[in-house]
Amino acid sequence: MSLSDYRFAIENLRENGIDILGTKSATENDLKQIETRLGVTLPVSYKKMLSEYGALEFDTIEIYGWLSQGIDAKFVTNVVHATERERADGRISDTMIPFLTTGYGPFYVVDCAEMNVDGEAPVYEVSAGGYRNGKDKLADSFGEFLRNEVRRTLEARAQGGPEFDDDDEGSPPSREFISEYWKDRAKDFE
């Protein structure tokens, strides 16, 4: 089910003309390195994203993943670096994998300790203070989470929200826009 959610999300982005950016696709060997280094089995839909895009970016969403610099890349968007950093800070458990920040404090993780028979793990929003201070389940899988994010993006565009447009001559959004966007998105999690 979740792999179909993932595919549906990607197809929706393409059908609606939203640019999908990636880095370097992770090979089967790269995926094994990530799982070995982090001591978890990654969820099926997240591994599919890694193997197709490496890291995934569309609109204002930037999902951590595999980078061309490899497993030791010291960038927050490298899922290995992000996971090791968050674990060292005690913000996530040894079975959680962070893949996206909210922009206003909390961040999103898949908890590989809760893997189901389909090879999927639930997605949680974790408090900025760490999982011990609170976590809210948002989806049963990464694929479902991605499908929901794509839906929100498409709804915002349909309502004429100030998302990225081709008419903006490639300029990035202002800090004020980003701040207002994430404040508005915070309401989604109340």
Rank of each mutant, 00 (worst) to 15 (best):
I92W: 01
Y124M: 07
P162R: 14
V80C: 03
S127Q: 10
E114K: 14
F142E: 03
N148S: 15
M96R: 02
E114F: 00
S171F: 09
I97G: 00
S171W: 11
E155G: 10
E114R: 12
T77M: 06
G130C: 07
G105F: 04
R91Q: 09
A113G: 14
G134K: 08
V109R: 02
D111F: 01
Y104D: 10
D136I: 14
G160S: 12
D89F: 12
A158C: 11
V123M: 05
D111V: 02
H81R: 11
E114H: 03
G119T: 09
D89T: 11
V123C: 06
T101Q: 10
E149I: 10
K137S: 07
R132C: 04
E120D: 07
E144K: 14
Y131I: 08
V79Q: 02
Q69N: 10
P98D: 05
D168V: 08
R151D: 15
T77F: 01
F75E: 12
T102M: 07
P162H: 13
D72R: 07
A158S: 15
P172Q: 11
L67N: 06
A139G: 02
T77I: 10
F107Y: 05
G160P: 00
R87E: 06
A139T: 06
V110Y: 00
V123G: 01
R152K: 15
P173E: 09
E169T: 11
P172V: 13
G129F: 07
S68Q: 12
M96Y: 01
G160C: 11
S141P: 08
Y108H: 10
K74R: 13
W66K: 07
C112G: 04
G90V: 08
T95L: 02
F142P: 00
D94R: 13
D165Q: 14
M96W: 00
D166L: 14
T95G: 09
M115I: 12
V150I: 08
R132W: 03
L154Q: 10
V117Y: 05
G143L: 05
F145L: 07
C112Y: 00
A88D: 13
P172S: 12
L146D: 02
S141T: 07
K135Q: 14
D118P: 06
D94T: 13
K135Y: 00
N133S: 14
T77Q: 08
F164Q: 11
R91K: 15
R157P: 02
D111E: 05
S171G: 12
M96H: 00
A128R: 13
G103V: 01
D140P: 03
S68V: 12
E163M: 15
R152H: 13
L67M: 11
E86P: 01
D94C: 12
V123L: 05
E120H: 06
T77R: 09
K135G: 02
G105Q: 05
D94N: 15
G105A: 06
D140A: 12
P106G: 13
Q159C: 11
E149N: 13
N148M: 14
E114D: 09
D140L: 10
F164D: 10
F107H: 03
E149G: 05
F99K: 03
F142K: 04
E86A: 15
C112T: 15
Y131F: 10
F75K: 11
N116V: 03
E149R: 15
A156V: 12
E149M: 15
L100C: 04
T95K: 15
F99W: 01
E163C: 13
S127Y: 06
R132M: 12
S171H: 14
V109Y: 00
R132E: 15
T83D: 05
V79M: 04
G103W: 02
Y104T: 11
D94L: 13
